[in-house]
């Protein structure tokens, strides 16, 4: 045994350090807990703004579909604008007109500069019947600046899957003439922010509160690019 060792133990190294490793670990853990609590209290982009929509905050899956004039439209080409996107079909007599009428009211009452930076995309889940021409008449009826999008059935399916949208064609009662079908579909509204993030998700019922929808849109348009 080396006699030089006991004095080393007699002068504890802890005295020269101000904090033990455990104190540092505990402090970091506490700070993380506080940060997590703050983040949970303000889910979203890190600001204090309370979004009306459900915060998603992921990169928006990109796609290219055909617009109502027959021209290709790529989602990522709309950076710098707020994009409100929804799935539907033109033979839809109730849900889709309600959605589009609400979106028209929401966007039309925004101040003009903001209005010019908001795009509404209506993506058909019935590409078999919805041609660019019929989409043009349909979306144009609600607002002249709305965009209707169609494409090949598999292209539409891919976009719907990327956003978690669901649809299924349903044959109606045989008393209705011919092979008439409607399409059951999810009717959420997806908000893509100016930075190209799929920022917010709205249940269809939320559309009736126009003021709160507008508050989200105006907040995102005003936010500096990060």
């Amino acid at each position: 045994m080396n006699p030089a060792e006991p004095p080393v133990l007699a002068s504890p190294p802890a005295r020269t350090r101000r904090f033990s490793p455990w104190t540092i670990v505990a402090t970091i853990a506490t700070l993380l807990c506080i940060a997590a609590a703050l983040w949970l209290r303000h889910p979203g982009d890190g600001t204090d703004f309370q979004y009306y929509g459900q915060w998603i905050g992921m990169g928006a899956p990109d796609f290219t579909l055909t617009d109502q004039n027959g021209a290709p439209l790529r989602l990522s080409s709309l950076r710098g604008q707020v994009v409100l996107m929804t799935f539907g079909f033109t033979h839809c007599p109730n849900i889709c007109p309600t959605t589009l009428a609400n979106l028209a009211a929401i966007t039309k009452s925004l101040p003009a500069p903001e209005q010019n930076r908001v795009r509404v995309l209506f993506i058909t889940v019935d590409p078999a019947r919805d041609t660019p021409a019929s989409l043009k008449q349909y979306v144009g009826f609600y607002a002249t600046n709305f965009t209707g999008l169609t494409g090949a059935a598999d292209e539409i399916a891919k976009v719907a899957k990327a956003y978690g949208a669901y649809y299924e064609a349903v044959m109606q009662d045989s008393q209705v003439a011919g092979n008439y079908y409607t399409v059951n579909h999810s009717a959420y509204i997806y908000l893509i922010d100016p930075q190209g993030r799929y920022a917010l998700l709205y249940n269809n019922d939320k559309l009736t509160d126009h003021a709160r929808m507008q508050a989200d849109i105006e907040h995102l348009l005003a936010a500096p690019a990060r």
Partner: peptide
Amino acid sequence: VNGVEVLGMKG
């Protein structure tokens, strides 16, 4: 359907 609300109509 898998956590997604699907709207539709029936006669």
